[in-house]
């Protein structure tokens, strides 16, 4: 847990440096809609810069809008990989 918290703070700092004009917060779908997440699915309020970094990480794993879909096992793998790099702060006891 401590490692995950440190990772979040490090990733947040990197994201804020990459997207310096991204103030405020945005809602993030735990399963992005382009990967089949429901519009009313679980969301988390994240700092905008961090949300942008997570979005980029997902699109590196599976490109947006390609007319192809990952099978359920591949989708699970993508989710695990992205969230192990970019923890959701609320899930590790941090208020964003």
């Amino acid at each position: 847990m401590l490692q995950a918290r440190q990772l979040y703070l490090q990733r947040l700092k990197e994201a804020q440096a990459t997207y310096p004009n991204s103030a405020g917060y945005e809602n993030h779908h735990l399963i992005p809609m382009y990967l089949g997440g429901a519009k009313d699915g679980q969301t988390y309020r994240l700092p905008t810069a961090y949300h942008k970094a997570i979005t980029r990480a997902f699109r590196e794993e599976w490109q947006y809008g390609q007319g192809r879909r990952p099978d359920p096992q591949a989708l699970t793998d993508i989710l695990v990989r992205v969230y192990s790099r970019y923890p959701v702060p609320q899930l590790i006891g941090i208020s964003p």
Binding site: I31, M33, Y34, G36, G37, A38, K39, G41, G67, R69
Partner: peptide, 12 residues
């Protein structure tokens, strides 16, 4: 069609 019904996605 191709795909599946998953969230907002539909077979296309």
């Amino acid at each position: 069609l191709f795909g599946d019904r998953r969230g907002e996605l539909r077979p296309e």
